[in-house]
Design a binder for these strands. Structure first.
Lengths: 223, 223
DNA sequence: TTCTAACTTACGGAAACCCGTAAAGATAAT
DNA sequence: ATTATCTTTACGGGTTTCCGTAAGTTAGAA
């Protein structure tokens, strides 16, 4: 189900135009008041919309804001945390040119973001893909970020994932892996859960089959 | 269908015992005269058996022979070539401790061997697996050799294989690959052929699923 | 040519994988 | 304690993959 109401928080006008165009391309109706340039303003719009019974269902925000006016919420992370408190369940994605990728990855995990897209080559396509994924209740981490995850890949893969993928790489079928984890009392032990987890990973990484997943892991020395 | 008549050509007694035991374990009846220690003797036994209408169906041979008596066929490669002339279709595998692995790989291809197992840790298990594979009309290249194929991997993968596996790694399904090669007029263009080729590769490498195959390729930088 | 052997393709059934849904369990907040 | 939410599990149907068989094709040898 595509989004009905999207709020953009970004103090940079030029990027705003692109984002709005992207939303229009996705047939999302967009009111000029759905765009704010201060974090405090963003939060108050969220609250107001919620109070009116017409809450936003997606927030697209930058991380750094140039605050020429003093703000309670000083940057994007403040806004995100506040928004999550005010409206749990609100989908939130970051669209930013700020920061190193390593930072981005940590934020993606720590803030439990639904999507993270860095500005740069191909960002519009990236953004569109992210929005579509998130609209479908999935998470999206830009491919441009994924490349730098070698070190702290735990953001995507936990021990469970690691073991499952390792066993697949050793030639086990998914069924065999399920049998193994059942025997060793590992948390989600059903084949169904395993399938769902694999599917989730692939979806998040925009990967379409197990072969590509293994190649990705090997390329990035994740396992 | 397991082998009925196996000829062993090896001048080393100690290894012979192991090989014979392995054959016995596989329920292959073995006559002491099915073991020779000279290449010429090996060939003549092959010819005799063929003439008697009871040909051997597997030859297991070493590569180097200590020829205290002058021989027409001086080493294993001579024997193999002669045997292939005399009895086309005869399955031939090498079981040897000789030579560098790179050499082994080249031999495996150039002599069109059915199997190649180097002596060393785990060689009995290796041997058994090889015999079973070959009995089933498949080829077998020991895992101990495969590790050194980085450079001359063309022994196993040709351009066709390379492209198919690459496309799988890029997220295409086998069906999609088949459609693509059909479009581009690449030689075996049916999905069936593609399946068979993949299956053959995995069988030869003792690999049980596509995930393991991709991991193997990445590990050995084959693609 | 004609035959044989090898390769390619089509096809079908079994197994594995994918994906959605719904029930059952666990967890947390009120 | 009870609701609500999230996780895990079970299950079913559709797709893909796997693997054997058989039929068709090609290439080379007799």
């Amino acid at each position: 189900m595509m989004f009905k109401k999207v709020l953009i928080a970004d103090d940079c006008d030029s990027t705003n135009i692109s984002v709005q165009k992207t939303l229009t391309d996705l047939s999302i109706i967009f009111d000029s008041r759905d765009h704010v340039t201060y974090c405090d303003a963003a939060l108050s719009r969220l609250q107001k919309a919620l109070a009116n019974g017409e809450p936003y269902d997606l927030l697209i925000t930058d991380l750094s804001f140039n605050n020429d006016i003093p703000q309670v919420l000083e940057d994007g992370t403040d806004l995100i945390r506040a928004a999550q408190k005010v409206q749990p369940g609100l989908k939130i994605m970051v669209f930013t040119g700020e920061g190193r990728n390593a930072v981005a990855s940590r934020l993606y995990r720590d803030l439990n973001l639904d999507g993270y897209v860095p500005k740069g080559r191909g960002d519009i396509k990236d953004l569109k893909a992210a929005i579509e994924k998130i609209a479908n209740d999935q998470r999206y981490l830009s491919a441009n970020l994924r490349m730098d995850l070698k070190a702290n890949f735990s953001i995507i893969f936990d021990e469970y994932d690691k073991m499952v993928i390792s066993m697949l790489m050793e030639g086990n079928s998914q069924k065999e892996v399920a049998i193994y984890i059942k025997k060793n009392n590992i948390k989600p032990s059903s084949l169904s859960s395993l399938e769902k987890r694999l599917s989730e990973i692939k979806s998040t990484l925009n990967i379409s089959n197990n072969e590509q997943l293994i190649a990705y892991c090997k390329d990035n020395k994740l396992i």
